[in-house]
């Protein structure tokens, strides 16, 4: 354990002096901030309405219950607002009724929603008068945000592999693997020390990213279990790519190639019909993404998480046995 930590600490020091490694470390956090800033806009389905200040206060109050209302002094001001880039419908009194003014390129939903609200108001309908019963599954997170954060986790795990690949390429360029091989440090300790670098940084990045994006109330044990199991594969790939590459650019290109099955697995999970999902069962990235999706949307239970992580580990084990001879040879 002592030697593993020494290798890890050295790699951490070197990573801090490597611009590409620094980018890899910082990127997930920057993307997490980006998701936090942009997803409220993406997920927001509130309809914007432009009303006149001199409108009936009861009408204004009614509309404010169901839409975001902006008030204007004149009809011209309201029309000018409608003609701006975003989707706003002006609802302006005309005679005893209201007219709805649109730019014309708004989604149908905006037009229908404004018209329906006006109709309900004119007929004096309220929610209290309705006989509708409301059921909710209690999901409080936006599905788009969950998908983006899940993608970010997948990407962070792949970046951990890239970090390992860069570290191995550095060792190869400096010809230092032989120098460590003539010390009491065993090859296993060397591999684990390097693994710790990628694993530690990826886990820390994932935790920070989840906190930034507001997923602080998820089951952390589940997310860490999925993270660690899917990271094992990424780290094996990182070792393999590092040993197969002669420089950092080649290593980065090789690891990026692995992004294809990752992206394919995500698309498969998101777009394939339920009866075709089995076609993705070969991919450990699919299982990891699926498990993360359940955990992030707070619908996960232990049997489903354990099944997914079990599949990830099983498939990783197959990759490991296939790659083991090359890794051993490369480190000798």
């Amino acid at each position: 354990m002592k030697n593993i930590l020494k290798i890890f600490m050295r790699d951490l020091k070197t990573a801090r002096r490597d611009s590409m490694a620094l980018i890899i470390i910082i990127m997930p956090i920057v993307l997490a901030i980006g998701i936090t800033l942009f997803t409220p806009g993406l997920a927001d389905t509130t309809v914007n309405l432009a009303l006149l200040k001199n409108d009936d206060p009861a009408h204004i109050q009614y509309m404010e219950n169901f839409a975001k209302v902006e008030l204007f002094d004149t009809r011209q001001d309201a029309i000018a607002r409608v003609q701006k880039r975003d989707d706003v419908a002006a609802v302006i009194r005309k005679d005893k009724s209201y007219e709805i003014i649109l730019q014309g390129n708004e989604p149908n939903m905006v037009e229908n929603y404004a018209a329906s609200l006006s109709a309900l108001y004119e007929t004096g309908q309220t929610i209290e008068a309705s006989n509708v019963t409301l059921y909710s599954f209690g999901q409080s997170t936006s599905p788009i945000k969950t998908m983006l954060v899940n993608m970010l986790i997948s990407m962070t795990i792949m970046l951990a592999g890239m970090l390992i690949a860069i570290s191995i390429v550095g060792e190869k360029a400096d010809n230092t693997i032989n120098a460590v091989n003539v010390t009491p440090v065993s090859q296993t300790e060397f591999v684990l020390g390097k693994t710790l670098l990628g694993g530690f940084i990826a886990l820390v990045s994932i935790i920070i990213a989840l906190l930034i994006t507001g997923y602080d109330d998820i089951n952390w044990l589940m997310i860490l279990l999925v993270g660690v199991s899917s990271m094992a594969l990424s780290l094996i790939i990182g070792f393999l790519m590092g040993l197969m590459s002669d420089d950092v650019i080649e290593a980065a290109t090789n690891v990026k190639m692995i992004m294809l099955p990752v992206a394919g697995s995500i698309l498969g999970y998101e777009l394939l019909a339920a009866n075709w999902q089995w076609t993705m069962y070969w991919s450990p990235f699919y299982w990891a993404y699926k498990a993360n999706q359940l955990v992030l949307s707070k619908t996960a239970d232990w049997p489903s998480v354990l099944l997914s992580t079990g599949m990830v580990l099983l498939l990783t084990l197959l990759v490991y046995f296939a790659a083991k001879p090359k890794i051993r040879k490369g480190l000798s």
């Binding site: 010809n175 032989n178 120098a179 003539v182």
Partner: peptide, 13 residues
């Protein structure tokens, strides 16, 4: 102790 013919030290340390 082993002194290698080709120098092999960590360039970033």
């Amino acid at each position: 102790g082993v002194s290698f013919e080709q120098s092999n030290v960590y360039s970033k340390l």
